[in-house]
């Protein structure tokens, strides 16, 4: 027995010695070797990084804000503010939300997909941050229509409880997704089948002919309505598109969303800046044409 303990003691001692040998090697010779190669590699990487910096068009919200490596910690004494850094951005961001891993729309259209209407694009992108694309771009009709909307986790894609209470407005880790009725059963619109089809298309896109691509795109966008929902579909007290109370919005938030301030501003925007909003795709008559029309009248 004594001999056994002695052997175990010896083994422990040997393990400790080997561990020390490893540590000493790491901080001495390995350090010199690593530093030598590291310097050469750093120079190469530095050149590549600089080159990439100029080439890259990092315009994805996900890449810049949600997955950015450029983190910064502000040591304020009483607290540490950790946030992502955007070069040249003055105001602090101070929030951390994971990217939307579920949405297959984002794969092709990006997470800032709205850029056609100059004055509206930031508003639409703001909504796209917590409202799934299908919420506005799919209009379910007839038996498919359910008026059921739920929240899904941006990272896992799983359905979750409403994140609205206790979060800053719009800063949710979840997004709203509509449900459709298929064979009498409720089913989320971003079903596994649709996701799989879309992602398979992305994988095989390069090997497809133009005709095949066109057909695949048509199938993917089959559920997309020609005219998306507009601001006033939700920002109205009567028959709002989204059942905000069911989605966990407290009364004061609903009142704010439906308030005169918000609704009035939407009207102003529509009237002054976005007359096309209600008629997307239509060309507006030019100023001269307008004048001509008036004079004709």
């Amino acid at each position: 027995m004594k001999n056994l303990f002695y052997k175990i003691y010896m083994l422990g001692f040997m393990a400790l010695t080997v561990f020390f040998i490893y540590i000493i090697w790491e901080v001495t010779f390995a350090h010199i070797i690593e530093e030598y190669y590291g310097r050469e590699r750093a120079l190469e990487i530095g050149q590549i990084v600089e080159q990439k910096k100029h080439e890259a068009t990092k315009t994805s919200f996900e890449k810049i804000i949600l997955e950015s490596d450029e983190k910064i910690k502000h040591y304020l004494g009483y607290k540490i503010l950790e946030e992502r850094r955007i070069k040249g951005h003055f105001h602090h961001i101070g929030f951390q939300i994971g990217p939307d891993k579920r949405s297959y729309c984002v794969d092709c259209h990006g997470d800032m997909p709205h850029d056609h209407i100059k004055e509206l694009r930031a508003f639409l992108n703001m909504h796209a941050f917590f409202v799934g694309c299908e919420t506005c771009h799919v209009k379910l009709e007839g038996a498919q229509k359910t008026r059921v909307y739920k929240w899904y986790d941006r990272t896992t894609g799983e359905l979750v409880e409403s994140p609205v209470k206790g979060s800053a407005p719009g800063a949710y880790k979840a997004k709203i997704i509509p449900f459709e009725r298929v064979d009498g059963k409720l089913q989320r619109i971003d079903s596994e089948d649709r996701m799989a089809f879309s992602r398979e298309y992305r994988e095989k896109e390069k090997s497809l002919s133009q005709a095949q691509k066109s057909r695949a795109k048509k199938l993917i966008h089959k559920i997309v309505s020609k005219q998306p929902a507009i601001c006033e579909d939700c920002h109205q007290k009567e028959a709002s598109l989204l059942p905000l109370a069911d989605l966990g919005y407290p009364k004061e938030r609903i009142d704010s969303i439906m308030s005169t301030e918000v609704v009035g501003m939407i009207k102003n925007y529509t009237k002054f800046y976005m007359p096309r909003m209600l008629h997307p795709g239509e060309e507006l008559p030019k100023v001269e044409e307008k004048k001509a029309v008036k004079s004709e009248i």
């Binding site: 315009t59 930031a122 508003f123 703001m126 719009g170």
Partner: peptide, 22 residues
């Protein structure tokens, strides 16, 4: 409007613009 984190767009030069104020 500017209290919403997703208030953002890509400008004409392709630069990311964030209009969120915490």
């Amino acid at each position: 409007c500017h209290k919403y984190p997703g208030m953002s767009r890509v400008d004409e030069e392709g630069k990311f613009r964030l209009f969120f104020i915490n």
